[in-house]
Amino acid sequence: MEREMKPAAKGALFVFTAGCLSYIFLKVPAAVGFANPELARLVTMHLPCAYVALVAATIAAWHGIAYLRKRDMASDIKSYVGAKIAFLYCFLTTITGSMFAKVQWGSFWNWDPRQTAVAVLLLVYAAYFTLRASIEDPERRAALSAVYVLFASILTPMLGYVIPTFFIDQSLHPKFAKFDVTYRMAIYPMAIALVWHLVWMFRLSVRAEKVNQAIAELELTSEGGMA
């Protein structure tokens, strides 16, 4: 069984997150130079989500490699959960980004290179889940999805950062953004809060996945026994 997060830690996480949120809304100033300076504060949600997606992708890759080396099914579950969380945060990054785009650039979706690249990234993870669904044998599924999740995790920073920054010239996104200290003081703690939450969610989801698999197995054998 995975170690569970203690109630005190959960409380602390809650307070910390609430603190980050109040800092964003009470202290962070409006950003001059944007179409809507007030709502430029959205980056303090948008960027942390992107960072956490990267962290989750790294977790998925790490456990994918671990599976290929040791062939332990527990690593497969962890890698799968990591990929799920990476997908979730890619999605949240897209959502917050698209709201930012609406208030600043006038439309929810502009086909900006980075938006397109992240849309493709969502497709990569969707392909990963389809791949998993299309293989019956658990060990083969684990091995093949471990291989694909490595590609997915390499692509996460590539599509999210490297290609839109260095390979394509025109973009609405800033290239090497230098944030004001007040913004950095909001972005990094929020990223910490989300990573902290990720640890909690990761352990829980791994536990859930294990229990579900065990139940499915038991049900399968008991049905076989009845027939």
């Binding site: 949120l21 964003i24 809304f25 809507n36 007030e38 709502l39 504060r41 959205l42 949600m45 949240l92 959502i95 917050t96 709201m99």
Partner: peptide, 12 residues
């Protein structure tokens, strides 16, 4: 002006 963003942040 910040209300929509507060809703978004709280929702997430």
């Amino acid at each position: 002006n910040l209300l929509p963003m507060l809703i978004v942040a709280l929702m997430i």
